[in-house]
Design a protein around this nucleic acid. Structure first.
Lengths: 213, 213
DNA sequence: CTCTTTTTTGGACGATCGTCCAAATTTGGT
DNA sequence: ACCAAATTTGGACGATCGTCCAAAAAAGAG
């Protein structure tokens, strides 16, 4: 009889391990310069294993993107939801700043995958799904703030969340691109302008917290 | 005697032609999926030609990036500088909107090259140079507006230009990523929020034109 | 232990990559 | 027309890619 009901969890665990290792390898070298042999060597397994757990390289990439969603986005959702409501913008900025400096390679990989999704249609659905989750995450955060302190948005919720998302995306990209030359400068500008722009999304008549300390 | 003084211009013309064809091919397939044979076939020349005019593939890529700078950025500079000062935001948005819909593949390539520059150090200098030009372009535009209608910026020029750059970058990326699903939605949100955010960069006491029509 | 199933290995396969070069061709000065 | 330089060709080279597979090794049920 089949042993799959018992060994299935073990197989999935190994599959998850391989996805994790592959993500690390991919974050280091980038989509264009990584090979299945790199991933296999980095994971300490043979090359054939990857084709045993994943049908093809494209299959592995899709699993990596999906895993990235469950990891990074879930963590971000938890941190944002659990963030204190008083001085929320400071804590929100702190989350972004910490993620930007600590998980730099992960974010670089995220932009890489997004760009690849523009060329490879097979990646488009997964990437779009993550972006939708991030978009709704930002929108829920905005709702949470407006509900708490009675403030209101200057534009409709969808537009405000979309704008804030684009701004954060652009600021992250800028901060990562200016690596050695003026990285700290970009970070400080990030810190200076981010709360300012966010504040402008709200109506000036409301009592929004703007402190960043 | 060497004929180089005369044929040099001809050689440079062919070099420029190859760069142009290579840019087109690269914009279609993306950095990760393009080969020198693709470029050669698309250009109607043999493979060896590319190594006759370019030392290596990396050399060709650098030439492409440099050519991209001279093309797109120069055009943008001309259009922005020549833009009318009255209702400047409307014309500025029009330039961005038209470039976003017409030169879509070019912009996609630009994000691709920026991401690759994060992995390949050899590309970093050229990409950073273009970004600096775009940054100063935005800053000059802001200066031009403030000088003309006597308004003033809410934050320092550097920070304002940096923020505006990041916002445009993020909006472009968002608009391109949401291709078939809600592309027009992203465009309309772009149109709705962009002048709003730009306006918030200026002090509310000034008489800034906010119309987008 | 025995046997079936699952897992893993190491290598082979054809395709394609960037690179390189000798020979053929074209070009332009004299 | 002649010749030397510049240009172009087509193919070869080794390396590496994703894919695939037969056989060995490991694992668990009986």
């Amino acid at each position: 009889m089949s042993r799959s009901p018992l060994s299935q969890t073990k197989a999935e665990a190994k599959r998850a391990f391989l996805i994790e290792q592959a993500t690390l390898c991919l974050a280091q070298k980038g989509y264009a310069h990584v090979s299945l042999r790199d991933i296999a060597k980095e994971s300490g397994v043979s090359l054939g294993i990857l084709h045993y757990y994943f049908a093809s390289k494209e299959d592995l990439l899709l699993a990596i993107i999906s895993s990235y969603k469950e990891g990074f986005v879930a963590e971000l959702e938890r941190e944002v939801v659990e963030a204190p409501l008083d001085d929320w913008m400071a804590s929100f900025f702190a989350v972004l700043h910490r993620s930007l400096t600590r998980d730099k390679d992960q974010h670089r990989l995220w932009y890489d995958l997004q760009v690849q999704a523009m060329y490879v249609p097979a990646f488009h659905a997964q990437v779009s799904q993550i972006r939708n989750r991030l978009h709704s995450l930002i929108m829920r955060m905005l709702e949470r703030v407006t509900d708490a302190d009675g403030s209101s948005l200057a534009v409709e919720k969808e537009a405000a969340a979309s704008t804030l998302y684009s701004l954060i995306d652009g600021l992250f990209l800028q901060s990562m691109l200016s690596e050695s030359s003026d990285h700290k400068n970009a970070i400080s500008q990030f810190e200076q302008t981010f709360p300012f722009i966010v504040q402008s999304l709200f109506l000036p008549s409301s009592n929004v917290h703007t402190s960043t300390k």
